[in-house]
Simulated scan of single mutants.
Amino acid sequence: MNSTVMDTIVSRRSIRKYTEEPVTDGEITTILEAGRAAPSGLNNQPWRFLVVRAGDVRQQRLAEKTKYAHIVEQAPLCLCVFLDKSTMYNRTKDCQSIGACLQNMLLAAHDLGLGAVWLGEIINQEPEVTKALGLDEEALELMAVLAVGHPATKGSSSRQPLSDLLLEPFTTTPTEAS
């Protein structure tokens, strides 16, 4: 196993406070490329991205549509991830693919030394958010917004023990069929 990948996965945390330092074009491209590399059913790649930088009028429109306005307003960057309805072939699989896309983007941001948080609550106001951003709510459905920036604080989190998450114990030694 590539321990670098596992280290990135295990050490990533949601970061909700950022410095004023901007996220560079190169960093944005790296994060978007990581999202683009996610798996999707039939390779339909149903995700579409909107980059909203600090100071963009759309940043305030996003903030007005979420109870986490304070995060959106002070983030140097918000990455909006949409489902392109014209590419959809199975809603569940396409939403799962976008989840993989978002996770890739979060891991890439962390690997770059940036902090990010997945804002999912904002989809409670979908399709009004899409419309407020000046996009076609018939063609696109907002799946999440990632707030991204240079961390002003460290994140923290705890995880349940694996044994509490297993529906039944598993054996680590394969048994041979008789």
Rank of each mutant, 00 (worst) to 15 (best):
N2D: 15
S3F: 12
V5M: 12
V5R: 09
M6T: 12
M6G: 01
M6Q: 13
D7G: 07
D7V: 11
D7Y: 10
I9A: 08
R12M: 05
S14I: 03
I15K: 07
R16M: 03
R16S: 01
T19N: 07
E21G: 00
V23Q: 05
V23M: 04
D25G: 12
T29Q: 15
T29S: 12
I31M: 04
I31Y: 01
I31N: 04
L32S: 05
L32Q: 06
A34S: 11
A34T: 06
A34H: 09
G41M: 06
G41F: 02
G41V: 08
L42V: 09
L42E: 09
N43M: 11
N44V: 13
N44D: 04
P46M: 06
P46Q: 03
F49T: 02
F49H: 04
L50N: 02
V51Y: 00
V52P: 00
A54K: 13
Q60M: 05
Q60G: 02
R61A: 10
L62N: 03
A63L: 06
A63D: 00
K65Y: 04
Y68I: 05
H70R: 14
V72G: 02
E73T: 09
E73S: 11
Q74H: 14
L79Q: 02
V81E: 04
F82W: 08
F82Q: 01
L83S: 05
K85Y: 07
S86A: 14
T87I: 06
T87L: 15
T87M: 13
T87Y: 09
N90W: 11
T92E: 13
C95K: 08
S97P: 09
I98P: 00
I98K: 06
G99A: 12
A100T: 09
L102W: 01
H110Y: 03
D111N: 12
L112V: 04
L112D: 01
L114Y: 02
G115L: 03
A116L: 05
V117H: 08
W118V: 06
G120M: 07
G120A: 13
Q125F: 06
E128M: 08
E128Y: 10
V129R: 08
V129P: 01
T130F: 11
K131P: 00
K131F: 08
K131V: 10
A132T: 04
A132M: 09
A132W: 07
G134V: 09
E137D: 14
A139K: 15
L140Y: 15
L140P: 02
E141F: 03
L142M: 11
A144S: 14
A144D: 03
A144M: 06
V145A: 01
V145N: 02
L146R: 03
L146Q: 02
A147F: 00
V148I: 15
V148A: 03
G149H: 05
G149S: 07
H150V: 11
S156R: 15
S158A: 12
S158Q: 14
P161E: 15
P161L: 14
L162F: 15
L162V: 15
L162D: 06
S163I: 13
L165V: 09
E168W: 07
E168V: 06
P169V: 10
T172V: 13
T173C: 06
